[in-house]
């Protein structure tokens, strides 16, 4: 395997951003290029993640390429997925041996429309989407099963809400009304507009561009069935497999950056990947500001930041997509080469 590292990151999230997608991404892309001293002609490959469904326009990502400056022509690709999957595509490109540097970015701007409506459109078009279940209701169906089976307890949900900053204490949590029975407001995400940009570099280049590169030592993504009935809502086999293939358990994990937009997801992901409740908090929590298409890549950016500032040496970053943790990507970043 060719070694690849994250060497620069920039991100921004706000509840309602006035800037459009290009205006949002220009400063972020400029920032990572400045951090590394690269200009666009030095970057071998550019890959982005965003959602046409969110923008309400086909090929909406083409407009956002204005933020990159694709003249003279650049080698570029896009995924209609969270940027974490754009990073995966880029990592594969590194493995092919054809690139040494890459720009990866993703963004989402849900505030002008109804994100709940957009999320409904990802569901089965014949059996589920015509019933327009909102994302919180689907999460609640899963939560009740987890509670009924005793896989999680109400106290664990409360403690998770306190840990992720959506409730002050257990009393505060239990005083909140039910939002989607059995979930309370503190269990569910607040959505935000935002974007994130990263620079990746190969082992030949990374040390020139960064004092302490965050090496990707394992990465894998897996998917569970689309059919609601065929899925066991209380288990996430895909994340278990991805964690195993990414080598999560080959060494100690200093901190975790989970793309958990619900308290139930935080607890379920930890259980499936055999992770304890962390001593060190995440650097940011998707439950406080979840940005469709960017939250997953932001987890990788935050994991890299904790390596750059020396607060961790081996970090797990996780990204998810699809209803209730259907698709999962697990990435292990390390400060020193093994």
């Amino acid at each position: 395997m060719r070694k690849v590292a994250v060497v620069a990151a920039a991100s921004r999230q706000e509840e309602k951003m006035l800037d459009n997608e290009v205006e949002m991404m220009v400063p972020l892309i400029t920032d990572v290029r400045t951090q590394t001293g690269l200009d666009q002609t030095d970057i071998c490959f550019t890959c982005s993640g965003s959602s046409d469904f969110l923008a309400g326009q086909a090929f909406s990502f083409v407009m956002t390429l204005d933020a990159v400056g694709p003249v003279p022509p650049i080698a570029e690709s896009h995924v209609e997925m969270d940027g974490a999957w754009a990073l995966y595509e880029t990592w594969v490109k590194f493995q092919m041996g054809v690139i040494d540097t890459a720009l990866v970015y993703s963004y989402g701007k849900p505030s002008p429309g109804s994100l709940q409506d957009v999320l409904s459109t990802q569901l089965d078009p014949y059996y589920v989407a015509p019933l327009w279940p909102d994302a919180h209701s689907v999460a609640a169906l899963q939560a009740r099963l987890l509670l009924e089976q005793g896989a999680i307890t109400p106290d664990e949900l409360a403690d998770c809400a306190v840990r992720t900053g959506t409730a002050e204490n257990r009393e505060d949590y239990f005083s909140q009304p039910l939002l989607s029975d059995p979930l309370r407001e503190a269990d569910c995400p607040t959505y935000a507009d935002g974007g994130v940009a990263l620079i990746l570099a190969s082992e030949e280049k990374a040390d020139e561009l960064c004092d302490r590169p965050a090496w990707i030592t394992g990465i894998d993504h897996r998917i569970d069935a689309h059919h609601f009935g065929a899925r066991d809502f209380t288990a996430v086999p895909s994340v278990r497999l991805a964690a195993q293939n990414a080598g999560v358990h080959d060494g100690p994990i200093d901190s975790t950056e989970l793309h958990a937009a619900y308290t139930t997801h935080d607890l379920l992901l930890r259980k499936e990947m055999g992770l304890g409740i962390p001593d060190t908090p995440q650097r940011s929590y998707p439950i406080q500001a979840d940005t469709l298409m960017a939250s997953g890549l932001l987890r990788i950016a935050e994991a890299a930041r904790s390596i750059w500032d020396g607060s961790a040496n081996r970090v797990l970053a996780h990204a998810t997509a699809g209803p209730i943790l259907q698709q999962n990507l697990v990435c292990v970043l390390e400060g020193k080469e093994n």
Binding site: Q116, D117, S120, L131, W132, D134, S137, A140, L141, Q142, R144, L145, E148, L178, S180, D181, P182, L183, F233
Partner: peptide, 12 residues
């Protein structure tokens, strides 16, 4: 399993 929808969305 079940959840309660107090305010159905317009498309529902």
């Amino acid at each position: 399993t079940w959840t309660w929808v107090q305010e159905p969305r317009p498309q529902s």
